[in-house]
Design a binder for these strands. Sequence first.
RNA 1: GCCGCGGUGGCGGAACUGGUUUACGCGUACGACUCAAAAUCGUAUAGGAGCAAUCCUGUGUGGGUUCGAAUCCCACCCGCGGCACCA
Length: 817
Amino acid sequence: MKNNLKKPYNPQKIEKKWQNFWNKNNTFKAQDFSKKKKFYCLDMFPYPSGEGLHVGHFRGYTFSDIIAKKRLMEGYNVLHPIGWDAFGLPAENFAIKTGINPAVSTKKAIKNIKNQLFLAGFGYDWDREIATCLPDYYKWTQWMFLKLYKAGLAYKKKAPVNFCSSCKTVLAREQVINGRCERCNTQVEKKFLEQWFFKITSYADRLLDDLDLIDWPEKIKTMQKNWIGRSEGIEIIFEIDFFDSRFNLPVFTTRADTLFGCTYLVLAPEHPLVESLIKGKKNSSFPLGKSTIENKKEIEKYIEKAKSKTEIERLAEEKEKTGVEVKGIKAINPVNNKEIPVFIADYVLPEYGTGAIMAVPAHDQRDFLFANKYGLEIIETIKPINETSVFPFEEDGILTNSGVFNGMDSSKARKEIANYLIKRNLAKESVYYKIRDWLISRQRYWGAPIPIIYCQKCGELPVKEKDLPVLLPKIKDFKPTGKGKGPLAKVKSFVEVNCPKCNSLAQRETDTMDTFVCSSWYFLRYADPVNSKEFASKKKIKHWLPVDFYIGGAEHAVMHLLYSRFFTKVLKDLKLIDFDEPFLKLFNQGTVYRQGVKMSKSKGNVVTPAYIFEQFGADTMRLYEIFMGPADQATEWSDKGVVGCYRFLNKVWKLREKVKSKNNQKPNQQLHKTIKKVTEDIEHFRFNTALSALMILINQMEKEKEPALSDYQLVIKLLAPMAPHISEEIWQSLGNKQSIFLEEWPSYDEKIIKEEKVILIIQINGKVRDKIEVEAGISKTDAEKKALAREKIKKWTEKNKIKKIIFIPDKLINIVV
RNA sequence: GCCGCGGUGGCGGAACUGGUUUACGCGUACGACUCAAAAUCGUAUAGGAGCAAUCCUGUGUGGGUUCGAAUCCCACCCGCGGCACCA
């Protein structure tokens, strides 16, 4: 073998060494109260599944690690922690299958994943590791619950909820995807159950408005905006003519401009008016229906049918509208006193608005379908501008058939009609939201118990703070019962407790909290992870928070990211923290695909980090994670592509033998350009192009006869955040005594970057025909002369007349003939 | 249906605010080294015509604006992600 290398690049040999070195020397440990500027860099903490992480999971962690390490070299005091989102269904389901306690299997999974992350060379502050399933942690989750409870933001209510028959628990609305359970894809059922909620709805406006304060991807902001779903409009009072009395029915609309086109009203089957008219349920707002409703039986039948529909059936029947008229009552359109019929139909939702709508078939798709089916009147009141009318026309236009409002445009008419009604006390301004309160109770075992006690005498009582945590008991039978109560209800020693008020025998709440509650505040705990007196000391929170940079998957857009913002605002209002938004900047890494589908265990297309570590080392994996493509875009993992990054590292390694410690040579322009590019590209998450710039530089230095040692050292620094092990090895082998991460990030000189000569492109009619090298800053006339003197150009200019010459300084000259 | 993102070689992808399309890497072909292979190094690599200089065509499709368009505008097709009877 002619290999003249003294030592070939052997990642297996060097990587372990430096991982231990950094660990021993606390290289990546965050300093509380350092005088340096702080930088809090956070990854969405992993769920410790037994399967461990695959290379797809490592992409986001690699990005944040590069940023954290660069910041460290730039002189920041960096907090880059990691922990475990350790409660939750998968561990529990695994426990049910195997009989192994989730505490045991989770601990094992954590150990495994921790090792995976350690071997990748990620610079976490391991002293701040947290796990949400440990009593030290969930004590404070329970404490947070009590804070919300005392602030009136946690309450128990009987409500229609989503129930998963496979997971045997209720779910939050955010966890129902297309009528199916987010976890197991089972169709959810609607049930009417008493459950715990957090009042996220009372923060709807702030959650919406404060999106302007944060640097997040527009996509996520839009998703949150849509989820919150704020609609401004008015509630219009329709008088209902009923037997010998009259009463008011409020209806919400955002389209007051279409009021003259309202030809009927529709009530949700669950509307209280229906209940009082048909079922005789007492209600202060509405009279009891006596025998005046002519088709009571028909209505009852319809309601019964509507209720039995599952979520999926309702979605499937989206286009097919059904309903039934309430015969015996009429409504009065307040704007023209027209009598119109009232219907009951399940396309009107009970939970939104007032549960009743004014139907305008000419200008609403759903009303149009319904009106057509039941032969109801359709009156056009909005005419499109410069178009012929096609029903339903849902855009803004010019009013017609609308009395004194004729000829107005929609937006003006909305205000005018609203004012007209408000003045006469027939309407009021109103805002409705799509977002619902967050259902947080779960009838499951593996979660933080809800700290509430029920006493027969004293009623519902919060556990005293001093009695926290309410420990999750170790039990053998984790199986959910599916009968409205979780497995904890079977544990007598857990359930039976003395009433904190009267000391008589009482019962604990046996539901546990949604794991998203645990993850709604974990970023605060990293500031002070072992505090047993507070969830974190105020001083430390003030020092570290808010998070400067947060990275994770986009799938948490309306769950974790919304919940965490909600928690932050609540804690701010309770004066426990003093900032409004938890994550100043958010970045979503792109998903990793392989063989055309998202990499996942269930698809059977995962590549394990261990395999890559063995074959090429952690540095190669890190480089490939970033080289694959733009950081925020989904991209395909190529087994063959990985090797390119390995070859690059080998080149870097071999270059060490070639560099000469010769000084005072002329500054390396390419190097300065690369420093600039790498510095800026990392700032903008363009890791792929940063790395390609380093490749270009290394290729060039390889070709030089005597590349300078000082240049080489700078290149190694640029490479260090991306490929830390090889960089540290080379750095210290060159006689440097301290870690490369304690060194300064390289700077560049704009003067050196500035080109003296530039390539000027010569175009004929916008097509490239020639190129010449010229002095930078050449004038238009000089450039013209030089260009026209070229043989290749003469060919074109001799035959044709020159019409125009366009000159872009230092770039191109375009001759139009 | 609505909202958002995307469509560039055989593949992953470059191309800054309109100015050399295909950087960097993979793959492929040929060559060097080798008894041989691997590794490594070198050369080539959008398609088409030509011995060649050179020319033509090319950034999903069709139009437009411009001296000049992957980039801007209009219409459409395809893929991905989100929302989904929200009045």
